Amino acid sequence: MAEVVTKGVGRVERTADRAEVQVGFETTGSTRDEAVNALTARITGVEAALTGPGVEVRSRQLHVHDNWDGKRRSGSRATQNYVVRVDDLARLDDLLAALVTAEPSWLGGPNWQLADDSEAVREAQREAVVDARRRAEGYVQALGARLGPLHRLADGDAETWAGDSSRVMAAYGGGSPGAAPEVGRLNLEAQQITVTIRCTATWSLLD
């Protein structure tokens, strides 16, 4: 039996409802203990900003190592890196302001995400199948034949992409001591997330 094989693509957009922020703090000291103690003092206030509903620390990574100047040890360095997930976007600006005020060594984000992409995936799947069938009907019409039933459907890889999703913020160094940075003026609105589904469909070709 003759067959026609077509590929279909479905794309849908949704507004991100989750954000992820990466932040790191670094301190130095003449010894490892001194570097760690300085780091502990540095992040004490930060930990308080990372608690509460809608904010979750996904990971904490501590690194402590000696610095070397050639073959001579020249003190120690301690860093702690965080990955923070924000499910309540109303808290995002306040969280970023608190992190920037703590003067991190680096701060990156937000990276925009969908908390649940299942509905978007299902819609993109439907669009992909419709696209595959539309292509098949075009080939069948060109051949002067008829499109038969679907024989096989192969799923492609789902892709989730946020256009311009990563806005990188540098450590805050301006303003008067203790002044809260005006993070809201950076226009860090939730971005559009594009969910893409691809499929390959095999249809019978009737005379």
Rank of each mutant, 00 (worst) to 15 (best):
T194R: 13
R58W: 09
D155V: 14
Q22Y: 09
G156W: 00
A97K: 10
L107I: 15
V57M: 05
T202P: 04
R11Y: 04
G24F: 04
E3T: 15
E103F: 00
L186M: 13
V86H: 02
L62M: 11
R185F: 00
A49N: 09
D17Q: 08
R146N: 05
P104R: 11
E123Q: 15
L62E: 06
H65E: 15
G108D: 14
L95G: 10
T44K: 11
G138K: 04
R72K: 10
R85C: 00
R77L: 13
V4L: 03
T101A: 06
R85D: 10
L114R: 07
R167H: 14
Y82F: 13
N81Q: 12
A90T: 13
G163A: 02
M1E: 03
T160E: 14
L50H: 03
V55C: 13
A41Y: 03
G24E: 15
R122N: 06
Q22N: 11
A132H: 02
S105G: 11
T200R: 12
L147D: 00
C199T: 07
P149G: 09
M169N: 01
S59I: 07
D157W: 07
S204G: 15
A190E: 07
P181R: 00
E159S: 13
V9N: 02
L188T: 04
A136R: 10
V168I: 10
A2V: 01
V86E: 05
N37Y: 07
V36K: 12
L147K: 04
E13W: 12
D17Y: 10
V21P: 12
E182I: 06
G174V: 13
L95A: 12
V129Y: 04
